[in-house]
């Protein structure tokens, strides 16, 4: 049994007003490829309803939240008759989970890579030589100092550290 949390509800609505237009018609869940394959374990409609009710425990505090199964294919967003921006709302919720330090490891690893090098995939020696063989130019990526500064400013660095603990 959960208690309605108007604070979280209002926060989400303030960030994305489209949430309040959802009338739970289930076009999203019926059209979602992941919902179909997971037999509703991942259910975009249900996550939206939880956001409507502001159910903090289920949305933010629960480890292994099904929200991470969203493939971001955006089909729901295109289908929604009320133009509820589901993916954006999910992004907001996932961001909150990140703040709380509870994201799946793969996301943390990608974040760590960005933090370390500014890019998601560092260039290996093999690749550099393959590039040469293919006649491709050398890539000069972003100065890491600059990126580090930015990531400090957005507080990304702290959140990664919190998650890695």
């Amino acid at each position: 049994m959960s208690v309605i949390n108007f604070k979280l509800r209002n926060q989400v609505i303030k960030h994305n007003a489209s949430l309040s237009y959802c009338y739970q018609c289930s076009t999203c869940s019926g059209g979602c490829p992941v919902a179909l394959l997971t037999q509703g374990k991942y259910n975009p409609r249900k996550i939206i309803e939880m956001a409507i009710l502001g159910l903090q425990n289920k949305l933010i505090k629960e480890p292994n939240s099904s929200i991470w199964l969203c493939s971001t294919c955006q089909k729901c967003v295109e289908l929604c008759p009320q133009k509820v921006e589901l993916t954006e709302i999910f992004t907001l919720l996932k961001n909150k989970i990140f703040e709380d330090g509870k994201v799946p490891e793969a996301f943390l690893l990608q974040g760590q890579a960005i933090l370390d090098s500014g890019i998601a995939i560092p260039y290996s020696k093999a690749i550099i030589s393959r590039r040469e063989k293919l006649g491709l130019p050398e890539i000069k990526t972003a100065p890491i100092k600059e990126i580090k500064l930015l990531l400090k400013e957005t507080n990304f660095e702290n959140k990664i550290l919190k998650g890695s603990k």
């Binding site: 049994m1 959960s2 208690v3 309605i4 739970q24 409609r45 249900k46 309803e49 939880m50 009710l53 159910l55 289920k58």
Partner: peptide
């Protein structure tokens, strides 16, 4: 939304209603 077979109940200063959208009872102060 609630269903005829699961009407809300008033208990003191809160209302309990079965929310069929998430499949569980919700408490509203």
């Amino acid at each position: 939304r609630y269903g005829l077979d699961k009407e809300p109940t008033v208990e003191g200063n809160q209302i309990k209603v079965y929310n069929e959208y998430i499949g569980e009872e919700i408490i509203i102060p």
